[in-house]
């Protein structure tokens, strides 16, 4: 199994990438880590005329905290998020999700931005980004746009990214308050896509009430889903089993799964509920244990 023939270019500067993209449009594919794109090429589901490798462009990697944001370069490898242990306490959900992405070798090559732009409804980062309220910085030769994660995922493998744009950075707001989160994933084995996964991120106010809550659902719809009703049911509440159970019920109701070899729609919906329930308990315990 190998790709159909294509032209290849690996520019050293982002401007050159953007100019090539504006020139080739839909005929071009951007190659970052390649862990989603190369399988598509090998299966000949994608046959671009030209592959533009951004692997040699400086400044697209790394994780840093500044101005109330965690900023992740779009070409940062999953493996580097996995080892960014200083995110523990602020963005637990990222640290819990990263090691569950595919397998260790894929995480050494695959990139966060590449995975988000690929927008597989069973991709893990989508649900995480919805839960933490991320924004995506995208560039074209025409300039820069900042797109909120909410609304970015339009359908299976479809996003708000234009054909002439490249994602350069993921920005995640980290505000005041004690936060906690987690990512729970049901997979059939290591390396599998999620059958169901849920990302949960909560922030507690000084009074112990939930000041904000983010819940993202993975693999239970045409795209990653933000469980807004469940989030709303949490905000302003003092955490309790009843509050959590109700939010979990609402999250399950927000899932729109389809039956397949991994299980019935009913099954997936209920696992989403169970995982959100468990995830909220973990997230809140972590937040309560954290110092603001």
């Amino acid at each position: 199994m190998f790709p159909a023939a294509f032209d290849y270019i690996a520019p050293g500067a982002l401007d050159e990438v953007l100019s090539l993209l504006s020139q080739h449009g839909d005929d071009a594919k951007v190659l970052a880590g390649g862990q989603s794109l190369i399988p598509l090429l090998k299966l000949r589901f994608a046959s671009p005329v030209i592959v533009i490798d951004i692997g040699r462009v400086d400044g697209l990697e790394g994780i840093r905290q500044e101005n109330g944001h965690v900023r992740i370069g779009a070409r940062t490898r999953h493996r580097d998020v996995e080892s960014a242990t200083d995110l523990r306490g602020t963005l637990d959900v990222l640290l819990d999700a990263a090691p569950l992405i595919s397998d260790p070798l894929i995480r050494n090559m695959g990139t966060v931005g590449g995975s988000i732009c690929h927008a597989d409804p069973a991709g893990d980062w989508g649900a995480v980004m919805l839960a933490v309220g991320a924004e995506f910085v995208v560039r074209s030769s025409g300039g820069e746009r900042v797109l909120p994660a909410v609304g970015f995922f339009e359908g299976p493998f479809t996003t708000g990214l234009h054909a002439d744009e490249v994602m350069t950075e993921i920005r995640i707001p980290v505000g005041a308050g004690r936060s906690g989160g987690t990512y729970l994933k049901l997979e059939r084995k290591v390396g599998d896509f999620a059958s169901v996964a849920t990302a949960v991120h909560v922030v507690l106010g000084g009074d112990g009430r939930i000041s904000s809550a983010g819940i993202g659902l993975c693999a239970v719809g045409a795209q990653s889903i933000k469980a807004t009703a469940a989030e709303a049911a949490l905000v302003g509440q003092t955490p309790s089993d009843a509050v959590i159970a109700e939010a979990a019920r609402l999250a399950g109701a927000a899932a729109e799964p389809k039956a397949d070899i991994r299980g019935s729609a009913e099954y997936k919906r209920d696992v989403a509920r169970v995982f959100v329930q468990r995830g909220l308990h973990t997230a809140i315990n972590r937040a309560q244990g954290a110092t603001a």
């Binding site: 049901l186 059939r188 059958s195 991994r262 299980g263 019935s264 009913e266 099954y267 209920d270 696992v271």
Partner: peptide
């Protein structure tokens, strides 16, 4: 014996 079959039996 996949998890969905066990869950369905339990349900």
């Amino acid at each position: 014996v996949t998890s969905d079959k066990v869950w369905a039996a339990l349900r």
